[in-house]
Amino acid sequence: MLQNEALLTTLEDLRNAALEGRFEALETLLPDLTEQIGLCPQPPDPVILARARELIRLLAACGQGLSAARRRLCDLEQIRSGGGTYGVNGQRQRLSVPAAESRRL
Results as ranks from 00 to 15, higher is better:
residue 53 R to W: 00
residue 83 G to N: 02
residue 73 L to D: 15
residue 74 C to F: 13
residue 60 A to I: 01
residue 25 A to Y: 11
residue 16 N to V: 08
residue 57 R to F: 02
residue 81 S to G: 10
residue 14 L to G: 00
residue 75 D to H: 12
residue 16 N to W: 06
residue 55 L to R: 07
residue 97 V to A: 00
residue 52 A to W: 02
residue 35 E to R: 15
residue 19 L to S: 09
residue 80 R to A: 07
residue 64 Q to A: 15
residue 75 D to F: 10
residue 54 E to V: 00
residue 24 E to N: 15
residue 50 A to N: 05
residue 23 F to W: 09
residue 39 L to W: 11
residue 89 N to S: 15
residue 67 S to N: 13
residue 10 T to S: 09
residue 52 A to F: 08
residue 16 N to R: 14
residue 15 R to P: 05
residue 30 L to V: 11
residue 29 L to T: 09
residue 54 E to L: 06
residue 56 I to P: 03
residue 79 I to G: 01
residue 69 A to E: 11
residue 47 V to A: 12
residue 40 C to P: 00
residue 23 F to Y: 09
residue 87 G to R: 12
residue 76 L to H: 01
residue 24 E to V: 11
residue 66 L to M: 14
residue 85 T to V: 07
residue 56 I to K: 12
residue 71 R to F: 09
residue 41 P to Y: 01
residue 78 Q to V: 13
residue 46 P to N: 03
residue 46 P to T: 00
residue 81 S to C: 08
residue 1 M to R: 05
residue 80 R to F: 07
residue 59 L to S: 07
residue 14 L to C: 07
residue 80 R to S: 07
residue 57 R to G: 05
residue 57 R to L: 03
residue 70 R to M: 10
residue 39 L to S: 11
residue 4 N to C: 13
residue 73 L to Q: 14
residue 19 L to A: 09
residue 59 L to A: 07
residue 50 A to L: 02
residue 4 N to A: 15
residue 63 G to C: 07
residue 4 N to G: 14
residue 95 L to K: 05
residue 92 R to Y: 15
residue 2 L to F: 03
residue 95 L to G: 09
residue 66 L to T: 12
residue 37 I to G: 01
residue 65 G to V: 02
residue 79 I to M: 02
residue 40 C to H: 01
residue 65 G to N: 11
residue 15 R to N: 10
residue 5 E to Y: 10
residue 48 I to M: 01
residue 72 R to L: 15
residue 88 V to W: 13
residue 36 Q to Y: 07
residue 63 G to F: 07
residue 92 R to C: 15
residue 90 G to V: 05
residue 25 A to H: 12
residue 55 L to H: 09
residue 38 G to Y: 07
residue 50 A to D: 11
residue 69 A to F: 12
residue 27 E to I: 10
residue 68 A to C: 06
residue 94 R to L: 09
residue 47 V to I: 03
residue 63 G to W: 03
residue 40 C to M: 04
residue 5 E to H: 13
residue 4 N to R: 15
residue 22 R to H: 14
residue 18 A to F: 08
residue 45 D to H: 12
residue 37 I to P: 01
residue 67 S to Q: 14
residue 92 R to Q: 15
residue 56 I to Y: 04
residue 30 L to Q: 13
residue 23 F to R: 06
residue 15 R to F: 05
residue 79 I to S: 03
residue 94 R to K: 13
residue 76 L to Q: 05
residue 64 Q to F: 04
residue 23 F to E: 12
residue 10 T to L: 11
residue 7 L to E: 04
residue 76 L to N: 05
residue 7 L to M: 11
residue 53 R to E: 07
residue 79 I to Q: 06
residue 1 M to Q: 02
residue 84 G to M: 10
residue 66 L to Y: 09
residue 84 G to P: 03
residue 1 M to C: 03
residue 2 L to D: 07
residue 26 L to Q: 04
residue 73 L to K: 04
residue 10 T to F: 08
residue 83 G to V: 02
residue 11 L to I: 04
residue 82 G to T: 00
residue 72 R to N: 13
residue 49 L to E: 06
residue 6 A to Q: 10
residue 21 G to H: 06
residue 38 G to I: 00
residue 82 G to D: 02
residue 32 D to Y: 07
residue 65 G to T: 02
residue 89 N to K: 14
residue 90 G to L: 11
residue 51 R to M: 01
residue 23 F to K: 04
residue 17 A to L: 09
residue 54 E to Y: 09
residue 85 T to M: 11
residue 24 E to M: 13
residue 25 A to E: 08
residue 51 R to W: 04
residue 92 R to S: 15
residue 79 I to F: 00
residue 1 M to K: 01
